[in-house]
Design a protein around this nucleic acid. Sequence first.
DNA 1: ACCTGAACACCGTTCAAGT
DNA 2: ACCTGAACACCGTTCAAGT
Lengths: 194, 194
Amino acid sequence: MTDLLETAKPMRADARRNRELILAAARELLGSEKADAQIDEVAARAGVGVGTVYRHFPDKEALLGELVRERFIRFNARLQEAIEDESAAPFDALAGALRRNAAESASDAATRRALMSGSERVFAHAEAEKEEFLRLAEVLVGRAHRAGELREDFVASDVPMVMCGVCSTMGKRDAGWEWERHLELVLRGMRPSG
Amino acid sequence: MTDLLETAKPMRADARRNRELILAAARELLGSEKADAQIDEVAARAGVGVGTVYRHFPDKEALLGELVRERFIRFNARLQEAIEDESAAPFDALAGALRRNAAESASDAATRRALMSGSERVFAHAEAEKEEFLRLAEVLVGRAHRAGELREDFVASDVPMVMCGVCSTMGKRDAGWEWERHLELVLRGMRPSG
DNA sequence: ACCTGAACACCGTTCAAGT
DNA sequence: ACCTGAACACCGTTCAAGT
């Protein structure tokens, strides 16, 4: 587990620690039950004053945006690994990365909610990482196409689209919604129609 | 377009009219741009006082819940039509209903947001309609299974699951997300793997 | 340089007065 | 019976004072 954040100017040690505590508190609180936790609660759980939360994140959406950004950094790492894995067939490399990314999303309800909020303001924080995601997806999709292993009309931007679809159905096991099956069904649909 | 609401006790004409005005205002405001419109704005657009909104809907989630409930009533009508259509092959009947329901959802951003909110409180308002949806889906899924036209592991509760997935990706054409293609891909994935 | 938390502003909700 | 909108409560955000 390496550092996710490369900040331009190094923060004072206590500030850096507070920042991490705030993000951890947000992930825990927003993840379990309390989808609508207040900033005051996040601050309390992190053991800092509200003002400190606002010093690190200009508003609530910036805080959620950082969760999304860090998630994309991890998504991209999985895609990069798939690109570097020479042993797998192109489609399997792509499918494997999607399975791993889905599994990670499944265990991070807070970020999923932030992703699903659909707020442009939240996503704006992760713009660069989103673009990088598309670049990486392009490589994997291109390879699968050249190998004839992917539906012809499937494009790189369909990768985040179908992943968004699968993530939107996570956390509803009590309704019989099994995202693993959902994902497999989508992967099956991605194969060539021949 | 018949009446969607069968209220037990008929309302006074002005109250009934206000109720419809409020729902229409909510659909318009919450649909376009303003996902976070206040109740005051909804009331203003409907031409009533805030108190009137709260007289008809105990809280904001009840208002959103009613949008969801009405949407499910329409969903169910499409499924019922598919059940009664003897001319189509079982899978095509199911697929046709899903295409029509998706198209209707696509043009109702307000309800989609309410559906996606994932709030249990919002969904509680449409419990009966959700159960009816599952009963109808069961019929169509059962027929398609018996005709050998559906993936063996596909179950009735997968219908709302995949529809939720497709709906979660609507309204993002600027990112290249085409829900029609998403739906076709999912429908393709639903076919038997043989 | 960063932290704190009381104070402020905004929006969901209530309720006393009106028709 | 139903409607109105000022008043209240809650939570996101600010900022003066502290370390």
